[in-house]
Design a protein around this nucleic acid. Sequence first.
DNA 1: GGAAGATTTTGATCCACATCAATATTTCCG
DNA 2: CGGAAATATTGATGTGGATCAAAATCTTCC
Lengths: 247, 247
Amino acid sequence: MNAPKLARVIDIHALKNACSNCSLREMCLPTGLKQDEIEKLDQMVYTRKRVKRGDSVYRSEEKFGSLYAIRSGFFKTTLVMEDGRDQVTGFHMAGDMLGMDGIGADQHSCNAVALEDSEVCVIPYGRLEELSREIYELQQHFHKVMSREIVREHGVMLLLGSMRAEERLAAFLLNLSQRFTSRGYSASEFNLRMTREEIGSYLGLKLETVSRTFSKFQEDGFIGVQQKNIRILDSEGLKSVLGRDPS
Amino acid sequence: MNAPKLARVIDIHALKNACSNCSLREMCLPTGLKQDEIEKLDQMVYTRKRVKRGDSVYRSEEKFGSLYAIRSGFFKTTLVMEDGRDQVTGFHMAGDMLGMDGIGADQHSCNAVALEDSEVCVIPYGRLEELSREIYELQQHFHKVMSREIVREHGVMLLLGSMRAEERLAAFLLNLSQRFTSRGYSASEFNLRMTREEIGSYLGLKLETVSRTFSKFQEDGFIGVQQKNIRILDSEGLKSVLGRDPS
DNA sequence: GGAAGATTTTGATCCACATCAATATTTCCG
DNA sequence: CGGAAATATTGATGTGGATCAAAATCTTCC
């Protein structure tokens, strides 16, 4: 009798991949659904995609079709100007949603590049639209995710438009720390997945300035830096950098 | 017989206020709807609100409840940091949608202030959610509006993070001109509704730099400036400022 | 209509960060 | 493993835009 065994194998496989069983569930999907709704959601995501370090999930001007929930790994999104200058517009980690920039014009407007080997859940956009018409909680959740992206970008605009170099980097580190914390990782020690140049691009600074400012924070006893490894030793100290006039 | 006369008055009034009859229709609502869907939409917007110059439609931290479609006038949105520094995050004109920042946390995260006497259509968010579950085109349209806001902000991040002062101001003028054009106004002559300081805040520059750069563009023959009145004399010239190295 | 306040322009000077440069360290890969 | 390329650090110098200042112009509102 092979059938039951086979069935179980398939079962386990299905379970393993199911949203309903995903540890990141509450980050990319709504909570408090009924059983039948949960089953529908599991059907929404029928593809996972591995993305190797350096590869893109999508590129600017590519036809839009799906959103991507980050299952594991780390990404940057970048914009490129005609003259070649490019700018990092965000860093994204497990539980974040990628691709919402593509909805408006039906084509992507930035590049989403993996900074380490990663995995994304492919969410066909048409299917998401359909389901969010049926499931109120999904609709609500999706709208919140988009709205939060707008608010996040507001924050970056504030950072780029009004803060000095030290404030930008302090805000950046505190934000990263907070995001790692909310995912169950250490708030005080983490590895940067991006280069000084990418940090600089995101913060509107040159890589030398990023490096110098890391060194200064280290001298001040706020952090310990060893290349990509960061230990936050005095988060109050870092916070005090924000909004204090040059000293 | 008074009834018919009265009825007609009400009729005209209803028509005047209806989305279906609004000249900005295609900016804030989807097109190609069936008659019954159009009628539903007309019911979605049952309040207009006049906002006097200097007044806010909503303020940061205020409870979120509605989106606001700008019927007429001009707005800025601003963020305020704890230490009082504030930053303009956007300028908004007729046909634009305000308030989407509030969905994610159920409270607004910026202030929306009228720069001239204005009028907004109040769209109760719950009602919009409901209707966009029923009307596919509305759902799609709303998602596009949010996505475009994300893309717009990407553009500002690029501007703030990678451009020099002249490029920022050139991009700003070209963007304004394009938006006026798409609303049927002159592309080459318009009135700024905001001060140099507000422009500077939006562009991450000081007001003196904005003023100087306007003067420089005038010397270069790209624009004519007379206080708030701007004439674009050489839009190709302005475009050439973008992405050319300091000269 | 006219005085007070807000906004804009322009000049002089300064400084935070960019740029240029050289070395050190790490990562990659044959 | 080892050499090349990528990344990071640190120092010296330059500069675009900030800051400080003062005058000009516009707006408001009694």
